[in-house]
Design a protein around this nucleic acid. Structure first.
Lengths: 227, 227
DNA sequence: CACTGTGACGGTACTCAGTACCATCGGCGG
DNA sequence: CCGCCGATGGTACTGAGTACCGTCACAGTG
């Protein structure tokens, strides 16, 4: 029963005190004292009182940057949808800690704002990635990139919050489902694009399974004079 | 040329000093002194040093709440799209002040975070409004509300930032156009219209590959009420 | 063992945002 | 003239965050 490293003891002390007295009612001195350390040491490990609650965002951001740079799917949106899973998985790994943090951010406005700012950084990263990927400097493409990033993040947040509130037992599956929803939004074109090239699809409802229809659909596409 | 009210003098002094020395290098004492007022008076007019830059967010939020409560369009999304114009119009009214603020938020992380947190409040308001309007407590409806709110806000931010950067001469028209884009996203892919018997045919053209569409096609089929 | 560098820690003192409280001054109606 | 009141100013405090310096443990080296 020797001592865990200082960083851990500080975080434990902080969460314990936040639970007992609340965030604002806890001073950095209190935290350091309970951890059996000096105030200076606290700031050596955490840049601020808030950061003791969100220690991993920077690392996660780098992780996602890497993932975006390496993994490459068919579309930018799919790549980003995949990358955002890292965030969800990270929270899930934290388990109870993530839930305690959620309880805090629900009560303390300053912490909620901080969390939101962190999420906005993910969103910005996604937006830039999508815009680069599309390579289209058009205003309309730029807006589209913005919307896509916002959707991915919003869908993720939705699923994450459900899990944090204990409303979800299989958040990963829910995320996949939500991402399918987002993909579906953008799969069907917003304004009907200029019809030069691309794919024209006619969908109709029958008693048949979709798979049974695929061959004929493909045949139709291949019959397209432009292709 | 007597004295403008204290509140104005404080804001002028603050912006002048922020321009001269930067935000962090300016203390509240400096601001008060330049305005010819006491430090106490500053905090009587602005709750914090940051608030002198974003004085109107609370009022705007109330304004939007009212607008949502009164104006009623055909769908929740249209109502919200309409309400968000208030934000854009407010910034445009501020004119050069808004641009100076943008220059500051671009440089100072703390201010950027603050701005983002404010915007998140609008988004939350929109989400709740849409969710209430739909009245459908389903998980899927809840996600949809979240996505819609995120899209409206993202589209607005996109247009607003373009205007702030001087890239747009008619931001209101651009906002309308962007909102049409958002509406189009959600217009098509809802649950398929009542398909009790008969044949539902939907034709659309997309630039995407058929394979990219398959997930959404499958999803549409699985939305069949019989399931 | 003595020497020395190094990294983690503690303490002190400072700046500055934000709060609490009290004192002051200038109208303004009675 | 008096008393009320709203706006202001001053003073003192708490607490976050920073800068700087001193200390101690513990390595490796002679």
């Amino acid at each position: 029963m020797s001592k865990p490293p200082a960083r851990i003891r500080l975080a434990d002390a902080a969460f314990a005190l936040f639970d007992e007295r609340g965030y604002e009612q806890t001073t950095v001195d209190d935290i350091a004292e309970r951890a059996g350390l000096g105030r200076t040491t606290f700031f050596r490990h955490y840049r601020s009182k808030e950061e003791v609650i969100f220690p991993d965002h920077d690392r996660l951001l780098d992780l996602i940057r890497d993932r975006l740079a390496t993994s490459s799917h068919s579309t930018a949106l799919v790549t980003v949808s995949d990358a955002v899973r890292l965030v969800l998985l990270h929270y899930i790994e934290e388990g109870d800690l993530a839930r305690r943090r959620y309880a805090l951010t629900s009560k303390v406005a300053a912490l909620r704002d901080r969390e939101i700012a962190s999420v906005a950084r993910y969103q910005r990263l996604f937006r830039e990635f999508i815009a680069d990927w599309m390579g289209d400097p058009t205003e309309s493409a730029s807006l589209r990139a913005e919307l896509m990033a916002a959707n991915v993040v919003a869908a993720h947040n939705h699923v994450l919050r459900r899990w944090l509130r204990g409303e979800s037992s299989d958040p990963v599956a829910e995320l996949d489902e939500a991402m399918r929803e987002v993909l579906a939004l953008f799969a069907t074109p917003g304004p009907l694009p200029e019809a030069d090239g691309g794919t024209t699809v006619i969908a109709f409802r029958t008693g048949q399974d979709l798979d049974a229809l695929l061959p004929s659909l493909r045949r139709l596409i291949e019959d397209d004079p432009q292709k």
